[in-house]
Amino acid sequence: MGKLKIAVVTINQPSLTAACNLMPHLHDYDVDVFGKKDLEHNLDHLNLYGKIDEIMQPAWEGYDAIICILAMGAVVRKIAPFLKDKATDPAVIVINLALDKIVPLLSGHLGGANELSDTIASRIDGCVNFVSTATDQTKTLAFEMFAKKNDLEIHNLKELALISNSLLNKKEVEVLTYESIFETIPNKKNLTRVDKQSSELCVNITPFDSPLLTFKPKVFLGMGCNRDTSFEDIEKAFLSFLESNKLIIEQIENIASFEAKADEKGLLEFATKYNFDIKFYNESEINNLEGKFSPSASTKFFGLKGVAEPSSVLISKYKELIINKEVYDKKITIAAAV
């Protein structure tokens, strides 16, 4: 990911002067300052505008965050026409002329306004970050922040308010997920892991579709094949595996196999076509892996616990097998892990 792209919006000489004072604290970001002509500044470049309405839409569409050094009421009125949803709106921050009070106004979590405000406040002596989001103030788990930090794809975001408010009200919330993922949740207060939903207050953290608030982790595949299996047969098996398990190609992060398959032309061609950085694991790595796996012909031929299942676990993020191996045409095996 590249540098955060920030627009700093000023309205007059005092706010432009404040922007000049702010710039050293934003040295590791990609920052453009917007201001009016005929004002004094020490910037290498100032983006000029006539009326503030001219720049708000380009700033909204072209930047990750907008820092406004002007009245909060004016900011609210100017951004109102562009508001869409918390998943796509940029971070909007308001900071005062003295640079000692900062407010993450919009997109505090997914847009990163709270985090950016925290960073700025930590860099300016005496600067206070006024965070209004209840989960931050009460140190309650914010599922969307957990998802953002762990690269989980978010679905049914409209259900987030119910879940967040329930946690704030100290109600029990179910989490439909795997033990390995559940253990990574930093604050499990009022959370219960389940294998099957029994309450409307439930969050789904699996790669599979659900009407619930859903956070999808990436999926990693382990693949095995007979010698000289063609690319066409491997691709057909792969697409069948996705279809039968209701997954899509974009969910697959990478694939893996046993090192004896490192010269399989069909497998390498398949990895190249789908832009997978295929990993190959040796006998020791596979056999030292804890856990039980499905019976495999590789035990007879290579002395291995398996190929598809252990390879998928080894390459995965959470080391959790979620789909046991499936066999295609008696020569291709595929398993999935998260």
Results as ranks from 00 to 15, higher is better:
3 K>V: 08
5 K>Y: 00
5 K>D: 09
5 K>I: 12
6 I>D: 07
6 I>P: 06
8 V>A: 09
9 V>K: 06
12 N>C: 12
14 P>F: 01
17 T>D: 14
19 A>M: 08
23 M>L: 15
24 P>F: 04
25 H>K: 13
26 L>C: 09
27 H>M: 09
31 V>C: 12
32 D>E: 14
33 V>H: 04
35 G>F: 03
36 K>T: 13
39 L>E: 08
40 E>D: 14
43 L>M: 10
49 Y>W: 11
51 K>T: 15
52 I>D: 08
54 E>L: 12
54 E>Q: 15
55 I>Q: 10
58 P>M: 13
60 W>D: 14
62 G>T: 13
62 G>S: 14
63 Y>I: 13
66 I>A: 10
66 I>K: 07
68 C>G: 13
69 I>W: 07
77 R>H: 11
78 K>R: 15
79 I>K: 07
83 L>W: 02
89 D>Q: 10
93 I>C: 08
94 V>Y: 06
95 I>W: 12
96 N>R: 07
100 D>G: 01
102 I>E: 04
102 I>P: 01
104 P>T: 03
106 L>W: 05
107 S>N: 06
113 A>P: 06
115 E>L: 11
116 L>P: 05
116 L>H: 08
119 T>E: 12
120 I>K: 02
123 R>A: 11
123 R>M: 07
126 G>R: 03
132 S>K: 00
136 D>W: 02
144 E>G: 03
145 M>Q: 11
152 L>R: 01
155 H>F: 10
156 N>H: 10
157 L>H: 01
158 K>R: 07
162 L>I: 01
165 N>S: 03
174 E>V: 00
176 L>E: 03
177 T>A: 08
177 T>R: 04
178 Y>H: 13
180 S>M: 08
181 I>G: 02
183 E>T: 08
184 T>R: 08
184 T>A: 01
185 I>R: 03
185 I>G: 02
188 K>Y: 12
189 K>S: 12
191 L>N: 04
193 R>D: 11
196 K>E: 15
198 S>E: 12
198 S>T: 15
199 S>L: 10
205 I>Y: 09
205 I>G: 02
217 P>K: 11
218 K>P: 06
221 L>C: 10
222 G>H: 08
227 R>G: 00
229 T>P: 02
231 F>Y: 14
232 E>W: 00
235 E>G: 01
239 L>T: 03
241 F>Q: 02
245 N>W: 09
246 K>H: 14
248 I>N: 12
250 E>S: 15
251 Q>M: 11
255 I>F: 02
256 A>V: 07
259 E>M: 04
260 A>E: 07
265 K>M: 04
268 L>A: 04
271 A>I: 03
275 N>E: 14
276 F>M: 05
281 Y>M: 06
282 N>P: 04
284 S>K: 11
285 E>M: 13
287 N>W: 07
288 N>Q: 13
288 N>I: 00
289 L>W: 07
292 K>A: 14
292 K>Q: 14
296 S>V: 11
297 A>Q: 13
298 S>N: 14
305 K>R: 12
310 P>V: 09
312 S>K: 05
313 V>Y: 06
316 S>V: 08
323 I>M: 07
323 I>R: 08
325 K>V: 09
326 E>S: 10
327 V>H: 04
330 K>G: 00
332 I>E: 01
332 I>P: 01
334 I>G: 01
